[in-house]
Write a protein that binds this DNA or RNA. Structure first.
Length: 180
DNA sequence: TGCACGATGAAC
DNA sequence: TTCATCGTGCAC
């Protein structure tokens, strides 16, 4: 069996983790998808991050230790999944934006909400440990070399200059990237 | 207790 | 470009 990513993997800066997650495999309930697109949210100082409004019941996992899931409901109907990064209390995270289907995935996976729908990920998993048996991320046996594209994050135009930062990352030429 | 709005996706 | 749909955060 493939080895789960370690706590130390997640404890690094969100930008580093966001890039490092590209090509890794998200596993849940027998379903597997290759991560091909991510976005980094740097912490409370990043006005596009949910943690910018402080510690709340919803964002609590973001303020917790690295290597845990932060799952939230958007527009009253879509779930989105983040991976918490950096040491406990830094409130940084990486949004998973798109997957390439690998095993037991049905439907589209190009977009943060579609990804969760296909993987069967909902709010019950928020705060869940990613070193657990039922929800985790592993490195594939063979990681082919990739080119990484950097772009501004999607849907954060309200965040002043933070909206312009190149904190969205995806695998160049991958068909399963969500937009453009 | 009320209300404006969103790290989206689909339809028009 | 419009809309579905409702939890969250903050004002009152």
């Amino acid at each position: 069996m493939l080895r789960r990513l370690s706590r130390r993997f997640y404890a690094r800066p969100a930008e580093v983790v966001a890039r490092a997650l590209l090509g890794k495999l998200l596993v849940h309930r027998g379903r597997t998808g290759r991560i091909v697109e991510t976005e980094a949210y740097l912490g409370p100082h990043d006005l596009a991050a949910h943690s910018a409004r402080g510690l709340t019941p919803r964002t609590k996992p973001m303020f917790g230790p690295p290597g845990h899931a932060y799952v939230y409901l958007i527009y009253g109907m879509h779930w989105c999944m983040n991976v918490v990064t950096e040491p406990d209390g830094k409130a940084a995270a990486v949004l998973l934006r798109a997957l390439e289907p690998v095993e037991n995935l049905e439907g589209r996976t190009q977009g943060p909400a579609l990804l969760c729908k296909a993987m069967g990920i909902t709010g019950v998993l928020t705060g869940h440990d990613l070193l657990s048996r039922d929800l985790h991320i592993v490195a594939p046996r063979l990681e082919p070399p990739i080119r990484i594209v950097k772009r501004p994050r999607i849907g954060v135009d309200y965040a002043a200059h933070w909206a312009r930062r190149l904190l969205r990352f995806y695998i160049k030429d991958n068909v399963f990237v969500s937009k453009k």
